[in-house]
């Protein structure tokens, strides 16, 4: 496994000077994943924060080949790139292995790009799809997505006088991708960087379609002090709200089992998007959130053979 020491001697695929917010989690995710590749990488990216903050013409923060097409089609676009690579390789026009990585936010992955992702994965293209998941449409002003957790206040499902934020839990996209029978599926977070690097290495070493769902705290949409990004990412794992695990050829394996499962309120209370839940009258919502996390966690433990 590559060490941090190895990484710092490698050229950066994504330079500094881009326009992501202070405290944004995705530059770290993108860099660590791409630097875990032994072979050259080619990046395809959906419309979203990552694209708009790194490619404002005539500048680019990318030191590796980069293609942005539209919002909902980074998986389909990457599948075309990979098909062209195969065609050109067979004709001897290109030599050497290239790892193809498609990035999309949760809006571009869970929602509008869901079909494109499912199709590309089912067809079996040799590429890694990474969802940098900040649990809402952050680029356009914190609108709810299919990845937004229960109870969160977003600009399209806000907390109000009669509704305490998002009514339903997010869909379990990682499990849905595992149900595509992919050779490698993983859930990770920016907060545990060695785990993230190890998973990326494993994904790159696995031929075929791979999917990684990486939780990325968003200081703007989650409304917290930017210095807390990594702490919040780790708390998400320690509360089991975002368990980190992998699925290799259908076999679930937990990456980290917290010694002590912290109550979800420890995570929620740090974030402005949940502050309404701590007002009198919303106790039931907090209970529902905790119950949902407990259920999902127990299911996951069972899948991982940990019970």
């Amino acid at each position: 496994m590559v060490s941090i020491k190895d990484l710092i001697s490698k050229p950066e695929p994504l330079t500094g000077g881009h326009r992501a917010c202070a405290g944004c989690g995705f530059p770290q995710i993108v860099k660590l994943i791409l630097m875990a590749s032994k072979d050259p990488v080619v990046v395809v990216c959906a419309t979203g924060c990552l694209e708009v903050t790194t490619t404002i013409f005539p500048y680019t923060a990318w030191n590796v080949p980069f293609l942005h097409n539209a919002f909902e089609n980074s998986a389909a676009t990457a599948s075309g790139v990979e098909a062209a690579y195969e065609a050109l390789r067979k004709k001897g026009k290109i030599k050497g292995n290239i790892n193809f990585v498609a990035f999309g936010g949760d809006g571009g992955t869970y929602d509008i790009g869901f079909q494109s992702l499912s199709g590309a994965m089912e067809r079996g293209h040799n590429l890694l799809y990474v969802c940098y998941n900040n649990e809402a449409y952050m680029n356009t002003g914190v609108q709810r997505s299919g990845a937004t957790p229960m109870g969160a206040s977003t600009s399209t499902e806000p907390a109000g006088k009669v509704k305490p934020g998002k009514q339903r839990a997010r869909k379990d996209l990682t499990a849905i991708m595992a149900a595509h029978d992919l050779p490698y599926v993983a859930q990770a977070t920016a907060g545990y960087h060695m785990d993230l690097i190890r998973k990326a290495e494993k994904a790159f070493a696995t031929p075929g379609p791979k999917f990684m769902n990486v939780l990325q705290p968003c200081r703007l949409g989650w409304a917290y002090d930017p210095k807390l990004t990594m702490e919040i990412a780790r708390l998400a794992v320690q509360t089991c709200m975002w368990p980190i695990y992998e699925v290799e050829n259908g076999k679930f394996k937990l990456s980290m089992k917290p010694k002590e499962k912290k109550p979800v309120t420890e995570l929620l209370k740090l974030q402005g998007r949940f502050k309404h839940l701590f007002k009198p009258g919303n106790e039931k919502m907090l209970e529902q959130i905790q119950a949902h996390i407990d259920n999902k966690w127990n299911d996951l433990l069972a899948k991982c053979g940990e019970q």
Binding site: L67, N69, E72, A76, T77, A78, S79, G80, A83, A84
Partner: peptide, 10 residues
């Protein structure tokens, strides 16, 4: 939609 998206990538 994916056909044209893949064409763009390719």
């Amino acid at each position: 939609h994916s056909a044209m998206s893949a064409c763009v990538g390719a």
